[in-house]
Design a protein around this nucleic acid. Structure first.
Lengths: 352, 352
DNA sequence: AACGTGGCATGCAACGTTGCAAGTGGTCGG
DNA sequence: CCGACCACTTGCAACGTTGCATGCCACGTT
C-alpha cells in the first residue's frame, strides 16, 4: 500500500490539505512549503489513491469498450486506436466482451459494472433499438455503427451503403457479373450488414444486373470460418460465381481460403473483396481488395463525443458522426479475365 | 446517478446497514424485512457504487493487461481468453498498451495507474530483469514469458526452446537444410526470441547441419512488415534458402507474402513455418505450420496465479508455470520436393 | 419472576480524497 | 497604533460502503 496524504502530511509537518494542494498543482502554497512537501512526497513514494478520488470526484478515468470479441482483428485494431486515443485524454480503456449475447450487452449497457466507468463505447450486435433507448441513467454512451436509434444517441459511423456500393461497382467494372454477397445477418438487429447488402444491391441495379437470392449468402458471425463455410456452400451448389464480396475481411479471407484450396485462381477465376481493411488482408495471397474505414478517425470521433458528454450539462443533442472511408484496391480483384466481352488476354496476377 | 444505500434505506424504512446486509446476501435478516428491502432496491434501481466499495474494501475488481499492442493477433487472442477467464472470476480486464516502450512499461509496473488495479498481467518487452525486480510495492504481478527474473516473480511460459527445436526438426525432416530463422531480436531484453533461436540452433546441431549466420535474420518487431522485409533481404542476397522459420506467425505470413509475390511456391520451393497459431495462419494460402501454445491455458494459469496473490498473506513462493504447446503441421511445410535425395517428382501444392 | 440466550437490527467509524469556509500571522495604509 | 487586507494554511465535512460492537426484543429456562 502506497503512502496516503495523511502520512505525507505528518512526515512534512503540514496539514493534509496542504499536501493535497501541492499534489494537485495549484492553489496558494509558499515555495518553501511546496518544496518541503514535495520532498516528503518523493521520499514516501506517494501515489494518489484512485478509489478515493473516484468516490470524491465522481470520475474514474475509465472508459469501457463493449464489443463482441476482442480477438477479432477489426476490433483488435480499433481497440488499439481507442486505447491510444484514450491515453492521450488521460483515460484508461477497459474491455468488455459480449460474445454477441444480447443479455450481456444489455447488462453492460445498464451499468452492471457499477458506475465504474465514465463512459461507454459500444458496438451493439444483438440489441434492439428499444433496448438502446431504455437506458437507466448509466454512463454516457457512444455507439459504433448505425443502430436505428437515430437522433437519440451519439454514434460514429461510416457510410456503409455507399461503401458497399462503391466496392460492388468496382467489381462490376472489372468484369464481374455474378457477384456473391457473403455476410447478410438477417438474425441480427445490428443494421450494418443490412446496409452493406443494400449498397451491394444498389450497385447491381445501377449496372442493370439482376439480384439473384442464391448469391446472397447469410452468415452467423463474421469469422473466417463463416466465410469459408459460405464459399463451400456456393461451390457445392454449383451456381455460377465470378466474384465474392465478403462483408468483412475475415469472411472474404475465409472464402479465399476455400476457393484457393478448391483450385480456383484469385482473381482470374474468382475476384474476392472484403470490408474493414485489417492487416491480414494486406498480406494475403493475393492481397485483398477492401473498403478501408478510417479507424483512427473512428476512435478519435468516439472519444471526442464521449468527452463532450462528460461535462454535467446536457450539452448538445446527440450527433451522428460520419467518418470517411476509401476503396483499397489490391490484387484480389484486378487483372481478371473479362468474361462478357470477347476475352482480353488474361493478365495473370504478376508472378515475375 | 444511481440510488445509494441511504436512499434505499429511507425508502424501505430500515437502516443503511440492513440494506447493505440484504445486498451482500447473508448476515441475519428477517424474511419479511429482506423482502421489503429487496422491493425498495428494485424500485430505486440500486447499483452498488464501485468506487466506494473499492475505497472501503481495497479491491477494485480490475486487472490490467500490459502488452506491447492489442492490435497484434496473438495478443488479441490472448486478451480474449484473459477477458473471458477474468469474467469468470468476477474481474474486469483493462488494457494498457506500451508500444514496447521501456519507460511506459516501467511506469505501468510502478503503478502509475494509482493502485486502481488488483493485479497485473504483463508481457514485458523492453524491461530489464533489474527493472522487474525493483518494484515499489505495487499490485501483484504475473509475467508472460521468461524474463530471467527467475525465482522472484510468478510467470507463465511455454517451453520456447523445445518448441522451436521441435519445429525446426520438423522442417529438417521434410528435407530442408537451409532454414532461415526470421525473428531474433538482439536489441530486446525479453528473452523469448533468444530462446527460440537457441532451440533452432539445437535442432540444427542434432541434425549435423551448420549454423549459417546469414540465415539468422534479426527483426525489430514481430509484425508482418518485418517478416516481409526480412524475406526481401534474404531474396536480395541470393543466399540459398529452402525454409523459413518465423518466430511469430506474423513474421512467417509476411515472409510468405513476399515469397509468393516473388513467384516462389510454398512449400514446394520454400517451406514456411511460424509460431503462435493465430487464426490468420490457419486460413493462409497455404495454411501455416506453426507452434500452437495452449492460449486458454496461459490465460487460466495467469489468472490463477494472480488469484493466489490477492490474499494478503505472502503465500507460496513465486511459481514458474509451464503451459503445454504442440506442433500444428499444415500445408506450408508438407508435400515438399526433397532436395538432398535424388528428387522425388515435385509434388506441387494441389491445384486441381 | 428474574435471567440468559439467540435472532435481528442499528450506530459509529473509517477507507483517502477534495470543496468549502474559516483561521493564522504578518504587512501596509490610514 | 489600529484595522484591513493579503498570502498562506488548516479543520471540517462528505462521497458510499462495510466491519465491529452494541442495542433491543421475545422467548425459554431456572
Amino acid at each position: 500500500m502506497s503512502a496516503t496524504l495523511r502520512q505525507v502530511a505528518e512526515h512534512a509537518g503540514v496539514s493534509v490539505r496542504t499536501v493535497s494542494n501541492v499534489v494537485s498543482g495549484f492553489a496558494l502554497v509558499a515555495p518553501a512549503t511546496r518544496e518541503r512537501v514535495q520532498r516528503a512526497l518523493d521520499e514516501l513514494g506517494y501515489r494518489p489513491n484512485a478509489a478515493a478520488r473516484h468516490l470524491r470526484g465522481g470520475r474514474s478515468g475509465l472508459i469501457a469498450l463493449v464489443i463482441p470479441e476482442i480477438a477479432s482483428p477489426y476490433f483488435g485494431e480499433l481497440a488499439g486506436h481507442l486505447a491510444d486515443e484514450a491515453e492521450k485524454r488521460g483515460w484508461t480503456l477497459l474491455v468488455q466482451q459480449t460474445g454477441g449475447d444480447a443479455r450481456r450487452e444489455r447488462d453492460l449497457l445498464d451499468g452492471a459494472g457499477g458506475q465504474a466507468v465514465d463512459g461507454l463505447v459500444m458496438s451493439p450486435w444483438a440489441l434492439s433499438p428499444a433496448d438502446l433507448r431504455r437506458r437507466p441513467g448509466a454512463a454516457p454512451l457512444v455507439l459504433l455503427g448505425e443502430q436505428d436509434a437515430d437522433g437519440l444517441l451519439d454514434h460514429v459511423v461510416i457510410d456503409n451503403v455507399t461503401a458497399a456500393r462503391e466496392l460492388t461497382r468496382h467489381l462490376i467494372e472489372t468484369g464481374c457479373t455474378r457477384i456473391a454477397a457473403v455476410g447478410p445477418q438477417p438474425h441480427l438487429l445490428n443494421g450494418t450488414a443490412a446496409r452493406r447488402l443494400s449498397g451491394y444491391r444498389q450497385a447491381l441495379d445501377e449496372a442493370g444486373l439482376p439480384h439473384d437470392p442464391a448469391l446472397e449468402v447469410p452468415v452467423n458471425h463474421l469469422h473466417r470460418a463463416d466465410g469459408a463455410a459460405a464459399m463451400r456452400r456456393l461451390l457445392d451448389t454449383g451456381i455460377e460465381v465470378d466474384a465474392v464480396f465478403g462483408f468483412s475481411d475475415q469472411l472474404a479471407l475465409g472464402a479465399m481460403h476455400v476457393a484457393t484450396q478448391h483450385g480456383l485462381q484469385v482473381p482470374a477465376d474468382l475476384a474476392i473483396a472484403g470490408f474493414d481493411d485489417v492487416e491480414d488482408g494486406r498480406y494475403a495471397n493475393p492481397p485483398l481488395t477492401t473498403v478501408s474505414p478510417d479507424k483512427p478517425a473512428i476512435a478519435q470521433a468516439a472519444l471526442h463525443c464521449l468527452a463532450g458528454r462528460l461535462t454535467p450539462g446536457d450539452g448538445p443533442p446527440p450527433v451522428k458522426h460520419l467518418v470517411p472511408h476509401h476503396l483499397e484496391i489490391r490484387a484480389s480483384t484486378i487483372g481478371r479475365k473479362v468474361s462478357t466481352k470477347p476475352a482480353a488476354p488474361g493478365i495473370r496476377n504478376a508472378h515475375r
